[in-house]
């Protein structure tokens, strides 16, 4: 799991005078489940397509298993792609779709047969080999696309938002399926999505991207607990982000209150961004809280209540299993570990 199988080095891609990817450096380790996460237009799909060979970088190198493959056309690369809308061959049935890559490689007939029935088993589509593509549901087409790619035993599988077209329940089931298949076959997965919950659920490593630049790389829990900047904090999970002042190490002031925190190294009286997760706020009696606020809106979300509470300076989002009626006064407390301090980013709301 520590060997680097794909290295993207100083990748720079421009299109129509616009910079899509800016000086990207990324190491993908063998057998890892890596997710490229970010909003539309952040460059994650372009990065994926660069690995696949459908996009040529203006500068930089793509190194696969130690070999520079910039000039290798897509059909010669040892990666396979799962496309967003599956791109199944409409004129071929399930069997022939999956067999496509094997036949190009001149695999003998009996071996093809064996491999296809094995892979159909793995993706839970046993017995579907004669079906036509348009008779399948979205989820089934999805699995044919996966089978078609995996049957060729690629070193790396690239997945371009493959679950986007599925309904919620199916998506969640498929996330577990994909993770299981990845572990079972020991293949490196490079996964692209804009859904942060999906990224956190499935990945070994998450790469957060914005405007062609990598914002943070890390394990899901690390990114969630320690976002590197306001963008990541805002994009991953829900956050309250507001301006504050770092009085000195371990002490910060925000929303007219002073809090002990666990960050240091920001200097004295430095303006900073403060991030607090909604579920990390403890509600108490108004006189016992560091911040006083009035509950404006309460929504029942199933797992918890989501409350918007207006303090003197800020509209707080709170997740709690305790119900507080609209209009009531509450006090809020936050323990030091749950306060995240970040360098001030231009354009953060107060």
């Amino acid at each position: 799991m520590d060997k680097v199988i794909i290295r993207l080095q100083n990748i720079h891609i421009e299109f129509d005078d616009e910079t899509i990817i800016e000086n990207l450096n990324l190491d993908i380790k063998d057998k890892e489940f890596v997710t490229l996460l970010g909003p539309s237009g952040c460059g994650k799909t372009t990065t994926l397509r660069t690995i696949a060979g459908f996009v040529t970088p203006d500068r930089g190198d793509i190194i696969f298993d130690g070999v520079r493959i910039n000039d290798l056309p897509p059909h010669k690369r040892q990666v396979n792609t799962i496309f967003q809308k599956y791109a199944l061959f409409p004129h071929l049935n399930v069997y022939d779709n999956i067999a496509f890559g094997l036949r190009i490689n001149k695999t003998p007939k009996e071996e093809i047969n064996k491999k296809i029935h094995e892979i159909l088993d793995i993706v839970n589509l046993k017995g579907y080999h004669k079906r036509s593509v348009d008779s399948l549901s979205g989820g089934q087409q999805q699995r044919v696309a996966i089978a078609r790619a995996l049957v060729n035993n690629p070193r790396v599988l690239l997945l371009d938002e493959p679950l986007g077209a599925l309904d919620l329940k199916l998506r969640k089931d498929m996330q577990i399926e994909l993770k299981r298949i990845q572990k079972q076959m020991g293949i490196t997965f490079v996964y692209v999505t804009h859904d942060q919950e999906e990224a956190l659920t499935m990945s070994d490593t998450v790469v957060v991207m914005k405007n062609g630049l990598i914002q943070q790389i890390g394990k899901p829990k690390d990114i969630y607990d320690e976002p590197a900047n306001a963008f990541v904090a805002d994009f991953i999970g829900e956050s309250n982000i507001l301006s504050g002042t770092m009085i000195r190490d371990f002490l910060v002031n925000f929303d007219d209150a002073e809090f002990v925190c666990v960050d240091k190294g920001f200097g004295e009286n430095t303006p900073v961004d403060v991030v607090v997760r909604p579920e990390d706020i403890a509600i108490c009696d108004p006189d016992k809280g560091a911040i006083k606020a009035v509950v404006k809106i309460v929504t029942f979300k199933g797992v918890h209540y989501e409350m918007i509470a207006q303090s003197k300076n800020y509209s707080w989002k709170i997740h709690s299993t305790q119900y507080q009626p609209e209009g009531s006064q509450i006090g809020m407390n936050i323990i030091p570990e749950y306060i995240h301090i970040m360098k001030k980013e231009a354009g953060t709301a107060n």
Binding site: P74, V79, N80, T81, F83, G101, N152
Partner: peptide, 22 residues
């Protein structure tokens, strides 16, 4: 669909293969 052509290339088809098979 251009993606179908890309899928074929992704699976190893060169330009002749793409034309005759897809």
């Amino acid at each position: 669909d251009n993606k179908v052509i890309e899928a074929a290339q992704d699976l190893g088809a060169n330009s002749v293969n793409v034309f005759t098979k897809i």
